[in-house]
Design a protein around this nucleic acid. Structure first.
Lengths: 215, 215
DNA sequence: GCACTAATAAAACGAACGTTCAATTAATTC
DNA sequence: GAATTAATTGAACGTTCGTTTTATTAGTGC
């Protein structure tokens, strides 16, 4: 046999990406074999090499696109307001929504950094640092404006990101808590953690921020 | 050649454990080969099988002992006081100190769960759940006593543990912040996060708790 | 110093790995 | 409908894997 009826390059590539994210998240990059991935897609292992030259290229592509998506999502969600409380609320909401929607891809991006070559690791970390810097800027602005009470901006940013990203470890949609409930709770925990005082801004596109502070 | 001069079973086994924790933390369990581990110890691969019947047995032993150590450390650090603020402060201090001291082992225990067989995974998760339950109990007691303001006890416990454990990702001893500074910051963030009111207890063995609340 | 045990080396096992290559067939173009 | 291109198979390559077996040497007890 050779080319199969109905075979389509674009569809196969998409199926490979999807199956790879799922398998790597579940088994780990090293534990997933190319034959296993091919079987999941319904194809022979050799066919994978039409789309990704090596196994590591596949991993890198998945991670890069995940990080690009995260930065793009934040770019779209970033509020126009200068109020640090509103900006922080938007950051938390975007972060949680994005990561819960892509649990598997997040797992891959967080756990498989060590499987990348040095230069590719650097590329991914650059994107990650840029994303974290956005949060540090919000915290610093809030601190300078007297809206937050924070010991150390960098440490607080890491603690918040760690706390928020951790949601993918235990959260399962359709269980005890809804996404909205979880987001509301994380918002109020975040606002208390940074010692936010109540925001006096009139425009509040993110209605939960006020609530969070009040709690 | 065979037995080498100065060879000692106990010393070799200890060297194997130490090298394995370090290698698995750095490379991942699947990526570390038994030959690589043996080379690190300065021995042939076959010699490892005198101490651990399989590679997975080695991993499981490391993880089980890590979790046992964590539970034992908390058992020793657990304060006699009934004050939830004091108990929470002790939990945070113990958690951070234990995990920073054993960064590599913590990495292994958190990242390699998927490499365990089903029944061994269950064993480890049972210990982990018991440890997390201690925190949930403290939070619930504090909530009922009116000392904390918390949306959801379970969710808050997970968020706190995620935040605290995350310290091993970025903290390096001897850099910008000292262990004491990091611990103090995490304590104040924790107390604010749970909405702790000032503890009125007279006995305060963990002096930082009061400070944390005050911040 | 002789028997015995502990600790290791050396070599080999079959299986699985990532990857390559040539052959083959489906779809597309003209 | 012939020529061309796209997509895939099946077989094979050399390497490495976890593990086992056997032999050999260092230390220990008497």
């Amino acid at each position: 046999m050779a080319r199969t009826t109905g075979s389509d390059g674009e569809k196969t590539e998409a199926a490979v990406r999807e199956a790879a994210v799922s398998l790597i998240a579940r088994l780990g990059y090293q534990a997933m074999s190319m034959r296993q991935l091919a079987a999941e897609v319904g194809v022979q292992a050799a066919a994978l090499y039409r789309y990704f030259p090596t196994k590591e290229d596949l991993l890198f592509t998945l991670m890069r696109e995940h990080m690009e998506g995260l930065l793009k999502a934040w770019g779209a969600a970033r509020p126009a307001s200068a109020d640090p409380v509103i900006r922080l609320a938007a950051y938390v909401e975007n972060h949680i929504a994005f990561h819960i929607e892509r649990r598997h891809a997040t797992h891959v991006s967080n756990m498989e950094l060590r499987s990348l070559s040095h230069e590719r690791l650097t590329q991914i970390l650059k994107m990650r640092t840029a994303y974290e810097k956005e949060l540090r800027t919000i915290l610093r602005d809030g601190l300078e404006a007297g809206a937050f009470e924070i010991d150390d901006t960098g440490l607080t940013a890491m603690a918040l990101i760690q706390m928020m990203t951790g949601v993918i470890v235990w959260f399962r949609p359709g269980e005890r808590l809804s996404l909205a409930e979880v987001t509301a709770s994380y918002l109020s925990m975040t606002m208390r953690l940074v010692g936010a005082t109540i925001s006096h801004s009139t425009a509040r596109p993110s209605g939960r921020a006020g609530n969070a502070v009040a709690l």
